[in-house]
Simulated assay, not measured.
Amino acid sequence: MVSLPDTVDPTGDSLTAWAERYLDLAVRGVRSTEVTDKITRHLERFTAWMTGGLGHDRVSAVTAREVAAWRDYLAAAGNVGRDGKAAPMAAATVNNHLAHLSALFSWIATHASAELLRHGDPAKKVAPLRLPAPEVRALAAAQVRTVKNVVDRIETFHELKGRRHRGTGPRLHAHARPLRDRAIVYLLFGTGLRRAEVVALDLEQLQPADPEQLRPAKTARLVGVRGKGRTNRTVFVGRDARLALADYLEAERLGDAAGSTSPTALFLAAASIAARRPDGRMSPRSINTIVEQIGRLHDAQISDPGRKLGRLRPHDARHTFAFELSQRSGHNRAELERRLGHANDRYLRIYTNPPDEVAAGYVEDM
């Protein structure tokens, strides 16, 4: 238990003050910067909502009714849509807000006087929202083949077009990194990594990391991959991903690393992007952008409606990998746990659902 400084009044009734103490003593320096920022943002939202509704931010006035009303508000209008108007917040995000609020009140109950929270943590009495069934989509073998075909030709889609670009000038758009994008897509489909895990990878985690050794290597791996729940696992890298990574490391990464401060990340944003982070590390959202672009290029090349992808997401690659791994490993649960970084049976079942084309084939002649 963290003891309060002598200057802190355990009978104080300001939610703003207690939240700041909680962040200083239990969150900052303990949780990652990304998580700390998220918790801070969630607590500030609740404090602002309480103050706006009651005219004050007294901790003693926070009841289960108030927390439930905040939950319902977030679910109905907690986001801002593209048109600038209020929009619903996803159930999982609302529940994340509730979990952070509950952690704050549990901490306050431990350190404050008994009179401040006479009935304990008000957030614990508020049920989280029921989560919708996860959308699962593994690509069929024919779709995977055409996706890889597009990825292998990705450089042609980034070429500058028009008469004025013919000749000795640059062939590609300034921010285009086709070899990096190709390596990312092959890694997603060949390892089942989550987008956050991909951007968190450091070059030193790839073994071997030298392109000349990586290409002929019979076994390559990513060590110490950090996943959800503080899991840590080794991920093997297949042939397609090995070759794509070697091409990227040899031809593109060196140039972007030269413009970065301590460029430890495996995948770097283009050095030409003014707003990129000092260390060059990409954001998880950028993985969405890359994968969605591949999906659009894919569908533009395909005339058969049954093979079109619609919106392609990073998790579609994870589901595709999980189903294929399940088939090839004889539904080996231990292997699925190790490679996917999930011990939860519910998620293992979700990730290994077959594509519709395969599932339909099971009953075709029954």
Rank of each mutant, 00 (worst) to 15 (best):
290 I>D: 00
350 I>G: 05
145 R>M: 08
292 E>W: 09
167 G>M: 06
272 S>N: 08
146 T>C: 13
342 H>V: 01
70 W>D: 10
125 K>C: 06
49 W>R: 10
320 T>H: 00
291 V>F: 07
15 L>V: 04
4 L>C: 15
120 G>P: 00
184 I>R: 05
104 L>H: 03
239 R>V: 14
207 Q>L: 11
305 P>T: 02
133 A>E: 13
158 H>D: 14
196 A>D: 05
65 R>D: 13
256 D>W: 03
274 A>D: 14
305 P>C: 06
252 E>F: 08
170 P>Y: 12
84 G>V: 06
151 V>E: 04
20 E>D: 03
360 A>Y: 07
215 R>Q: 00
286 S>R: 02
206 L>M: 05
248 Y>K: 01
191 T>L: 05
88 P>F: 09
124 K>F: 11
29 G>M: 09
111 H>N: 14
330 G>F: 04
41 R>K: 05
304 D>A: 04
264 T>N: 09
349 R>D: 14
69 A>G: 05
95 N>F: 03
34 E>N: 10
262 S>H: 15
111 H>L: 15
202 D>E: 12
188 L>I: 08
221 R>T: 10
24 D>H: 14
110 T>F: 08
327 Q>C: 10
78 G>W: 00
106 S>R: 15
175 H>Y: 09
269 A>P: 00
177 R>L: 14
139 L>C: 13
82 R>H: 07
326 S>P: 02
145 R>H: 03
13 D>A: 12
153 R>K: 06
109 A>R: 08
327 Q>H: 01
220 A>V: 01
286 S>D: 06
154 I>W: 08
26 A>C: 13
269 A>E: 09
99 A>Y: 13
177 R>V: 11
97 H>E: 08
336 L>Y: 00
266 L>C: 07
193 L>S: 07
300 A>N: 05
322 A>T: 03
290 I>N: 00
51 T>P: 13
306 G>H: 10
263 P>D: 03
351 Y>H: 10
252 E>A: 03
12 G>Y: 07
134 P>L: 11
203 L>D: 13
155 E>A: 12
275 A>T: 13
130 R>G: 08
57 D>K: 08
5 P>F: 12
233 R>C: 03
184 I>V: 15
173 H>C: 14
